[in-house]
Design a binder for these strands. Structure first.
Lengths: 244, 244
DNA sequence: CGACCCCTTGATTAGCCTCAACAACCGTGG
DNA sequence: CCACGGTTGTTGAGGCTAATCAAGGGGTCG
């Protein structure tokens, strides 16, 4: 008997609840086929109306807000198993454009299909909403860091967040992890210029706190950073007991 | 026959769909009794675990993130009809503390109760999620403004957002609206100091763009600001057609 | 009546941006 | 195979925005 390999989304969910066979089937039907996309391909454009949701199967995607000029903000970063588009389910035109940051693949589905699914599987839907809320919370934390931390602290906080998020997908033994973002893009996520990000990164490297082996990053004193910045790993703190 | 006055939440929902009597009853049961709270009272504390959701019945509430020291960020502002707590439904300890900004009242319910309700009334649940997504989008817009706009533009953007949001509750004939926030609090929402907020407000007043009659504010050239800042009224752009 | 919060204004400072120049790398096409 | 343009990373010099420091007035609550 052939057992299909489970998707990143399903394995993310399986971390928190034990799926029945029925639920597993329903999830597979919900996801449908995956679409392969290349780096820089659009997942959602901000110029076209959209009523779809995407589930990342592999790779990274990034949401950007652009105002006229070259003023760009990176509002969210998505990795395998993440849901894209839940946070703007009430708008017919996405408030940001979402593009692939690496090669990868996504499942596309309609909002309606997700909600119908939710009505059929309340327990799973509650978990999906909970998972999505973690990203919203991370956004809140980043807002706080951006408004009230120094540039260096912001950068450290950002790196800790990326590290924490990527651990949700696969545990790395070390504190080393891939960061497929240019310095300009890091700046766009933090409200800094690429030039200043460069100076900060080199400074952290010189003081031995960070090791850069593009595209990988290693945080050498993670716990020191975490206590200094009062960093909370929201992804590890998911509590789903209320729904059972 | 006595007809009960509908809550702010119900009238918000009624703007977008026509409620059946059954739905109206179900909403009333969901809300239950309202709790009266005074200015500065806690709705949710960040030090106590919480698995509840609040629905604002009247007044304003504000969510703050605090890190040690006096570094505070105001992450969200809630008005009558808003739902508090959906965006951190997956955490057992709220990432911010929520307090009343004015006297007012709230309905309190458990996450479980909301989700059970959602399973019973998928259409309403989809609308509720859509409404909540508008606040998430507004947060995104503010993040962009904070990272990429000048202090003055940030402030204008913020005022336009508050104005747009308060219009969801009640249409004001003029561009005048109440803003029960101190200058320090405005600064905490924008990543500025109270002192600089003061200078900016006085500057805008002097140039005739703003009229301040505490606690009311009047934006004198709203459309000029909106085009200059590329402001999008997310609250007016709710699209719910996909769910029907 | 004092304590505290909120607003207001001036003078000074510094953190981060801007401008500028160049090196390294990449994919592309001749 | 190399030439090439475009993107990315690196470093220096100087400037501006918004923070900090400082001081005082008005209002309110206990």
């Amino acid at each position: 008997m052939l057992k299909t390999v489970q998707s990143a989304f399903q394995s993310r969910i399986s971390r928190h609840i034990l799926l029945t066979d029925t639920e597993r089937d329903a999830l597979s039907r919900l996801e449908g086929q995956a679409v392969a996309l290349g780096k820089r391909d659009h997942v959602f454009s901000d110029s076209k109306p959209n009523d779809r949701i995407a589930i990342m199967r592999s790779g990274w995607a990034v949401s950007r807000v652009r105002s006229d000029g070259n003023q760009t903000t990176i509002s969210q970063i998505f990795m395998a198993g993440d849901i894209i588009g839940l946070s703007d389910i009430g708008l017919n035109r996405p408030p940001h454009e979402t593009t692939m940051q690496t090669d990868g693949s996504v499942h596309l589905l309609s909002r309606k299909a997700l909600c119908d699914f939710g009505a059929q599987h309340p327990r799973l839907f509650a978990l999906i909403l909970s998972l999505a809320s973690l990203d919203a919370t991370a956004l809140n934390d980043r807002l706080h860091a951006i408004t009230r931390y120094s540039a260096e602290d912001r950068l450290m906080h950002f790196l800790l967040t990326i590290k924490a998020k990527s651990e949700q997908i696969s545990e790395h033994a070390s504190d080393r992890f891939p960061l497929p973002l240019s310095q300009k893009e890091i700046g766009d996520a933090l409200g800094l210029t690429d030039i200043y990000v460069n100076r900060l990164l080199r400074g952290l490297q010189k003081s031995g706190q960070l090791s850069l082996t593009r595209p990988n990053v290693k945080i050498n004193e993670r716990s020191v950073w975490a206590t200094r910045l009062n960093f909370q790993d929201r992804y590890a703190a998911l509590d789903f007991s209320w729904a059972s």
